[in-house]
Amino acid sequence: KELVLVLYDYQEKSPREVTVKKGDILTLLNSTNKDWWKVEVDDRQGFIPAAYLKKL
């Protein structure tokens, strides 16, 4: 499984997104879309802008 580091706080703006904090380490589920990556946060799955994440 691939992990990503959150570079900036992000507040979800729709039900398909998730809220994260800078410094969080998340499981990356899908990065095929270059703009929005799907991650897992506390048993929730959702999207975050790829620019907010860095692969570890």
Rank of each mutant, 00 (worst) to 15 (best):
E40P: 00
E2L: 09
V4E: 00
Q11P: 06
V4A: 10
V39F: 01
L26D: 00
L5Q: 08
Q45A: 12
Q45T: 13
L5D: 01
L5T: 06
D42M: 14
Y52N: 13
T27R: 12
N30A: 09
I48A: 15
I25H: 04
L7C: 07
K55L: 14
E12D: 05
T19S: 15
Q11L: 15
D35E: 15
R44W: 10
G46T: 06
L28P: 00
V18A: 06
K1H: 11
Y8F: 12
I48C: 13
A50E: 04
L3W: 12
L3Y: 15
S31C: 11
V4T: 03
K21E: 06
K22M: 08
Y52W: 08
R44T: 07
R44I: 08
R16E: 12
N33C: 11
E12G: 14
K55G: 05
L7G: 01
Q45Y: 08
T19V: 04
K22P: 02
K55T: 08
G46F: 14
L26M: 04
L53R: 00
V41I: 13
L28Y: 01
L7D: 01
S31Q: 09
V41Y: 10
K22Q: 11
K34D: 11
K1F: 15
L53V: 15
Q45I: 14
E12A: 15
L3G: 03
K55Q: 08
K22A: 14
A51S: 15
V18S: 02
Y52D: 04
L53F: 02
Y10G: 00
N33L: 09
K54M: 15
D43K: 11
Y52V: 14
W36Q: 04
K54G: 05
L26K: 02
K34R: 12
K21P: 01
D9I: 01
N30E: 15
D24I: 06
Q45D: 09
D43F: 12
K54W: 08
V39N: 00
T32Y: 10
L26C: 10
K34T: 12
G46D: 02
T32I: 09
Q11N: 14
V18C: 07
E40V: 11
T32W: 08
K55E: 07
S14L: 08
A50Y: 02
T32H: 13
K1P: 14
A51F: 11
V41C: 10
D24P: 00
W37C: 03
E12W: 08
Q45S: 14
Q11I: 15
V4C: 11
K54V: 14
D43S: 13
P49R: 05
W36E: 06
L29Q: 03
Q11F: 15
R16K: 13
Y8W: 13
V4R: 01
I48G: 01
L53E: 00
A51L: 12
A51V: 14
F47R: 03
I48Y: 01
W36Y: 10
E12C: 13
Y8N: 13
V18G: 02
L56N: 03
L3R: 11
L29V: 14
A50C: 08
Q11A: 12
T19L: 03
Y8L: 13
G46S: 04
L29H: 05
E17D: 05
I25Q: 04
V20H: 02
T19E: 03
N33V: 06
R16Q: 14
L5Y: 10
V6P: 00
P49E: 04
V4F: 04
L53P: 01
Q45K: 14
A51T: 15
T19M: 04
I25M: 06
E17C: 06
L56F: 09
N30P: 04
D9Y: 04
L5K: 06
V6A: 07
K34W: 07
Y8A: 14
D35G: 08
K1Y: 11
W37G: 01
E12T: 09
L7S: 02
D35Y: 15
D42R: 12
Y8E: 13
K22N: 05
D9K: 03
N30Q: 11
F47N: 04
T19N: 05
A51P: 09
V18M: 10
W36L: 05
L7R: 05
Y10V: 01
W37P: 01
V39G: 00
Q11Y: 15
F47L: 09
V20F: 03
V18E: 02
K21C: 11
W37Y: 05
N30T: 08
V20W: 04
E12R: 11
E17G: 13
K21N: 09
E40Q: 15
E40L: 10
K1L: 15
E40T: 08
D42Q: 12
F47K: 02
N33H: 12
G23E: 02
K38T: 08
E40D: 07
L3T: 08
K21T: 10
N33P: 05
K22T: 06
I25N: 02
R44A: 06
I48N: 01
K38E: 15
L5I: 14
R16F: 13
